[in-house]
Design a protein around this nucleic acid. Structure first.
Lengths: 239, 239
DNA sequence: ATTCATATTGCTAAAATAGCAATATTGAGC
DNA sequence: GCTCAATATTGCTATTTTAGCAATATGAAT
């Protein structure tokens, strides 16, 4: 993202990754699992997680597993403001409600999509916040368009590190990614539900999606609507 | 918050503090200022901030100042879910709208209150999110009730580290804190606007407030209403 | 252009961490 | 309850990383 400093601090880098991993699921995780998932040594992981626990950012259960701690509320408040994306995007996302589809705003982390907003018809607008955990990027329109920004090598390196090594799903993903690069939008089908997504920002920092039973004949129209919202959000973000 | 690990990682601790400091204001900050504010050495600060910049969590302006970076959106999405507080509190906060006052949900960090939610009459519910930056804890009902949880020594240590060393304001704060400990709610007057706040959770992890032109005769009634909301939020948080 | 303030890096002493091996703790199965 | 196996945690010291000085670079202001 930026030039490496003279002395990049590996403890900070991996500590933040652990923090992020703890944040995205509710279930408490064992140190061994955390270490394996992030490719870290166990003792080191244990100490970093305990440091996070000391800060209140992690919480140790009786069975010595770790989950998000109470200071996560503090970090949420701070990063919510620091990001400013939800605050500025919400008025525009709300306007998409009338489409009758799921509306989502998400970000890519490693090989996962996290949702800033995930709204289904019938819910009040405010209920879309922090409602949904994560989705594997390869099974998400947003994931596909965000992954598509990477070079094939960078992509391979991301995917190699995660269980996504499965060959058949990898090939499917690459097909979707190549199409996304050509069309400019991410598309993923799950059963007869279609997810359409556009990236926000250059370089992209988030993505925007509509999901539901969208017929092929309506795709261009829905993408055009997403484009308007994309432009509107990018405009307020560039101020 | 938790027992110190065998090898607490100071880089992670201070790196996270820097991250938090960058998140809570929009203006880019010079390294010197960051270092002074957090009581850190300049070279170290420079390297930690550059590591954050490498992760995308900080952004370096042309004039070599640092602000929140694009990965802050990612952290916001993750911590929003990891915290779960906004998601679960919003339906209850919305019910407070009919009171005709400002409704807020905030957290304490060092000597500052950050807002998860800060809603004013006339706004849509969703607009209360991430709208307001920070407020010095000593000038906030929420700040007072949250600071009141600390022992006098812990309190002195928090305040000593910050510019709040001002004697007259310190004395006023202590009066407010002692009253809060007795009454169980935080109260702060700014002009003729009154702010009333209750802490959430044991130990408290956040606070809830109503602010506006609240007459003395109405205080007990408003505190009772806040208590109901507090109980409702605590209940959903304990599941 | 020159000056000043601040950011950044090179360098090495000093301090913190890594990671092994040992120990402690917990949960599962008797 | 007891034993065993799996996992977490810590003590220890070699190794690595960081701290912080001094030097340099980079901008901004004049």
């Amino acid at each position: 993202m930026n030039s490496l400093p003279a002395q990049p601090n590996q403890s900070l880098i991996d500590g933040v990754r652990l923090l992020q991993r703890l944040a995205i699921t509710q279930e408490p995780l064992a140190v061994t699992l955390l270490a394996r998932e992030l490719g870290l040594e166990i003792t080191r992981t244990n100490r970093l997680v305990k440091t996070l626990a000391h800060l209140g950012l992690a919480y140790r259960t009786q069975s010595r597993k770790y989950a998000a701690g109470p200071a996560m509320h503090v970090l949420a408040a701070q990063s919510l403001f620091g990001s400013g994306l939800i605050q500025r995007a919400l008025p525009h996302l709300e306007k998409l409600s009338s489409q009758g589809h799921i509306v989502a705003l998400g970000v890519l982390w490693e090989d996962q999509i996290s949702y800033l907003y995930h709204w289904s018809p019938g819910l009040p607008t405010y209920a879309g916040l922090g409602r949904v955990a994560v989705c594997p990027a390869e099974r998400s329109g947003m994931g596909i368009i965000l992954l598509a920004q990477n070079s094939d090598e960078a992509l391979a390196s991301i995917l190699r590190r995660h269980r996504s090594a499965n060959n058949s799903s990898y090939r499917k993903l690459m097909i979707n990614i190549r199409r996304a690069r050509k069309t400019g939008y991410g598309e993923f089908m799950a059963g007869n539900s279609r997810s359409l997504a556009l990236a926000l920002g250059t370089p992209p920092y988030a993505a925007l999606a509509l999901s539901g039973r969208i017929r092929s004949s309506k795709v261009a129209q829905k993408v055009a609507i997403l484009s308007q919202t994309k432009a509107a959000i990018e405009e307020v973000m560039n101020k």
